[in-house]
Design a protein around this nucleic acid. Structure first.
Lengths: 127, 127
DNA sequence: ACCAAGCTTATGCATCTGCATATACTTCTC
DNA sequence: GAGAAGTATATGCAGATGCATAAGCTTGGT
C-alpha cells in the first residue's frame, strides 16, 4: 500500500535521488564537463590520503568494478587522473588525481554543493 | 568536506539507493522477471483508479518520457498492460494494467516489500 | 477555415551500466 | 617450486536511459 512507511521511504528515496542526480548531471555536465560518477571519483581521490585502487573506488562510489574501470579510463584520457601499477600487488592499479583533476574538482565543487543544497535541504527526511 | 551535513545526506542517499536498487533488481529479476522500473509502472497502474497516460507515468516513476514509452512497450509486449488511444486527445496514450499484469504484480509485491524492509529499515535517516 | 505554435508519444543515436569472461598476477597446497 | 585456486583489472556484449528530433494531433489567432 502507499501508506506502508517503508514504501513511503522508498518513494522519497527514489524522488530525491532522481531530482538530485538529474540536476547534478545537467549542471556538472554543462558547467564543468563532468558526470556525477566522474565528480564522485575525483572527490574520493582528493579526499584520499594517497591514491586509491580501482576496487576501493568502486565500493566508495557504488559502481560495479567494470564501470569503475571505465570511469577511471575516461578521467585518465581527459588528464584528470593517472593510473599507476601497484608495486606490492602487480594485479592492482592505483588511481591518483592529477593537478588538472584537482583544479577541475575545485572548480566543480561549489556547483555540486549548491545543487545539493537546492535539491536536498528542506526535503522531507527519510525512514 | 565530508562533514558537511548536506554532503553526508547525499552520500547516504547514494548508498541507500544503490543498495536497494541493486538488491531489488536482482530479486525482482530472478524471481519474477521484472526490472525495478517495470515493477514501479505496474504498481502505479494497480493503484491508479483508471488508467494512466504515458506522461503521468513518467513523472510518477521519475523516468524520461522516452524511457517511459519503452518500459510501457516492453510491458505491453509481455502482455502485462495494454495501450489504448485516448479519445479526448488523440495524441495521448493510456496504459492500462491487464489481468496478467495484476497477477505478476501480486506475485512480485511481497518480494519487493521484503527487500525494501531488508535494505531500508534500520538504515540511518536522511537529512 | 487556415496556419502557426504547442503538446504528446515514438524513434535514432550516443552513452553508461552490469554481467560474464579473459588475462595477468598472487597465494596456497603439496 | 609447480600447479590449482583465488583475486584484480580489462573487455565483449546486451540492455536501459536521456537528448534531440520526427510524426501526429490540438489549439488559438486571424
Amino acid at each position: 500500500m502507499s501508506d506502508d512507511p517503508t514504501v513511503q521511504a522508498w518513494r522519497r528515496l527514489l524522488a530525491q535521488h532522481a531530482a538530485a542526480t538529474c540536476a547534478l548531471d545537467r549542471e556538472l555536465g554543462d558547467l564543468h564537463g563532468l558526470s556525477v560518477s566522474e565528480f564522485e571519483v575525483l572527490e574520493r581521490l582528493v579526499e584520499a590520503p594517497e591514491k586509491l585502487r580501482i576496487q576501493e573506488l568502486a565500493s566508495e562510489i557504488h559502481l560495479s568494478q567494470s564501470a569503475t574501470t571505465r570511469v577511471v579510463a575516461r578521467l585518465e584520457k581527459d588528464g584528470l587522473l593517472c593510473r599507476t601499477m601497484c608495486d606490492m600487488d602487480r594485479r592492482g592499479v592505483y588511481a591518483c588525481i592529477s593537478d588538472d583533476g584537482r583544479a577541475r574538482y575545485a572548480e566543480a565543487r561549489p556547483t555540486q554543493r549548491r545543487v545539493l543544497g537546492e535539491q536536498l535541504d528542506g526535503a522531507p527526511a527519510a525512514v
